[in-house]
Simulated assay, not measured.
Amino acid sequence: MSTKLTSIVIPTNNGLPLLQRLIQSIRTYTDDRITPYELIVVDNGSSDGTAEWCVGRGITFIALSANAGFPAACNKGLRIASGDQLMLLNNDIVVTTNWLLNLSSGLAQEPGIGLVGPVTNYASGKQQVTYSFDGIEQFMRIAEQTNRPDPAARERVLRIVGLCMLIKREVYEKVGELDERFSPGHYEDDDYCLRVRMNGYGLMMCRDALIYHEGSASFRQQSEETVQQLLARNRQLFIDKWSIDPSTFIGT
């Protein structure tokens, strides 16, 4: 059982229906008596009423005048976060039964673990798992069966995808912020995971925390060619920074 406060930082850009769905799922499936949390929405220049909706519901909100990208938005949210644990969460997620409880348990399971993540239906690498489901309601029932707390269902990995990362505050204070050279996004999570490991912390994937991911919702607003160019550019930025090909640990 975790009584540590978790700050949940959610960047968003013109995705109000997704954000509403996510926050509803957080309210429904997170017992704040067991896993207390605060919400911090960072809005990348939306024009769809996101600001009014968040303010009207008393949600801590940071408004950026333009789209600064995922890393910058995360950093701005992290700077005002007060939690013992810090979570970066995509707006196109739907959380599930026991999601935060099991992730928090994974983070505390071994002293050397600094960052954990869930499994999901849409991700790269090991975190993608395959379940047959017809619609979100059936997925939620599968997650209810899957998300029974189980320390044996958690394993050390070399990489956690940035769609849902839970980080110890001491790790954030030691490792620092996301590297904004990767804006608007892609490979900033690989970079962060590498830096966490370089500072002596381990990463853990929690198979007892299955969440739903819509998948690249913000980047779908761009053409496939634009996305591929961004991926290629940021991959090269990563290689230039570390002299390591990120594909060496993406699948692990």
Score class of each variant (00 low, 15 high):
Y192Q: 03
G251R: 14
C206P: 10
R148A: 13
Q128H: 05
Q128W: 02
T6I: 15
P246D: 13
V9Y: 03
D48M: 00
W242I: 10
D31Q: 07
Q229H: 11
D245K: 02
N67I: 07
G125N: 09
R154I: 09
R197L: 07
M204F: 04
R169W: 03
E170P: 02
S104V: 10
P111Q: 13
Q109A: 15
L22A: 02
Q236S: 02
S105M: 14
G106W: 06
Q222S: 15
T12A: 08
S183G: 06
L178C: 12
L88T: 04
A143E: 00
T30R: 09
S105H: 11
E173H: 11
R195L: 12
N121K: 12
Y29L: 13
I59D: 00
N199H: 14
A143G: 09
H213P: 00
I40R: 00
I23P: 00
D32T: 14
F238H: 02
V161W: 10
F61N: 08
M204P: 08
M1L: 11
A217V: 05
R235E: 02
K168H: 02
G202T: 13
A81S: 11
G114N: 05
N102V: 05
Y212N: 00
V9I: 14
D240H: 06
L115F: 05
C164F: 12
M198V: 12
G15C: 11
I136F: 04
S2C: 13
